[in-house]
Design a protein around this nucleic acid. Sequence first.
DNA 1: TAAATTAATGACCACTGAGTCATTAATTTA
DNA 2: TAAATTAATGACTCAGTGGTCATTAATTTA
Lengths: 210, 210
Amino acid sequence: MSITTQPRKRRKEDRPAELMTAALGLFVEKGFAATRLEDVALCAGVSKGTLYLYFDSKEALFKSVIQEGVVPVLVEGEGIAARHEGNAFELLEKLLANWWAGIGETNFAGIPKLMVAEARNFPEVAQFYYENVIRRGRALLGSALERGMASGEFARLDVETTIDVVIAPVLMLFIWRYSLAGCQSTPADPRQYMAIHLSLLRAGLKGSQV
Amino acid sequence: MSITTQPRKRRKEDRPAELMTAALGLFVEKGFAATRLEDVALCAGVSKGTLYLYFDSKEALFKSVIQEGVVPVLVEGEGIAARHEGNAFELLEKLLANWWAGIGETNFAGIPKLMVAEARNFPEVAQFYYENVIRRGRALLGSALERGMASGEFARLDVETTIDVVIAPVLMLFIWRYSLAGCQSTPADPRQYMAIHLSLLRAGLKGSQV
DNA sequence: TAAATTAATGACCACTGAGTCATTAATTTA
DNA sequence: TAAATTAATGACTCAGTGGTCATTAATTTA
């Protein structure tokens, strides 16, 4: 087996997606600052120079990853909410299931940890994430809660704050998975964890049923 | 006003504590990897070389910060649990109040974000934190939950997983404060946030009162 | 007060990684 | 098939940082 230099294939169409996939994997594994662009390029089978052909900077690469990967799942969720006709708690469960399939079971689940870790040091990236993901996700969840409060299915609580309390355990689950999981400091059984969270919610949110 | 070189005061006794305070502030502000030891030294009013007189490495400095700052609060909590005589939910509230005063209202509240952010890249530090803080904190919280389940005050749920669900919103509150707070993506009113969390818990944990 | 001790300094080294650009070669066009 | 185009390369620059160590000077000891 001789070491031959690969012929350089030219595949302009596929490079950006391949680079974004490689970047996501390394970003969630090592963090934004600690990821070397040369490794991203290597992982995508190109050289560092090629990466700069398609993305202006490390930050631009990261923004693309968010835009192409996370935003579509939110759009799906918005469609689900618009079409939903059952009670509000069922909508919450549907939204969660969609989020789980599109984010929770993919490398995108690592993004919350990533953002939390890097927000202070890369405020421009944080701002982008806030505008495009957080704000939109909160609006979606808030509309489900308001629906339940309006119908009397849920108790009347401050909506913005309740969003935070409802979403926090889900975010922490993702964050644990990508941080301290190596120390067995993460819920052993995410399914059970979510079941308990939902059962606490079901009992705790309950209002005066109309 | 002439620029005069300060006389170098020799204050062997105070340096370590001053360096640790400076380090905590910068670590929670910028993260472990992104904090320059020269800045820590500057912030403590000494030169970088002096820092190495008292701490072997960046990691050693960080471990000292944890050991001196966080562990004592856990020890206090263990004392509170041992002396407590009321019902289990009251114990939970007491432990929370103690945690809040000793951690939540200090720079130490930034440590959870710090650990989450850096765990993967500094496994030795993560291991140290797990052994000395997480394991111990979980044991403390678990004992309070078990007390409630044994008396029938709480429903019987898987203890380990319930610990996670109970603690997650508290951790997320701290994490938000030190990450995306700049984007208004943090609960505006922590007091209300905790009130809602506790009210969900009170209703959700309730068991068949004996 | 002279000598010994040691707290404190900061220039320096070795290494790293983002971003550049002159060069190479695959592909297209004439 | 020769010329033009452009995808791809990788050596290079440059700024930054953890850690070292020979030197300086504050304090203590004799």
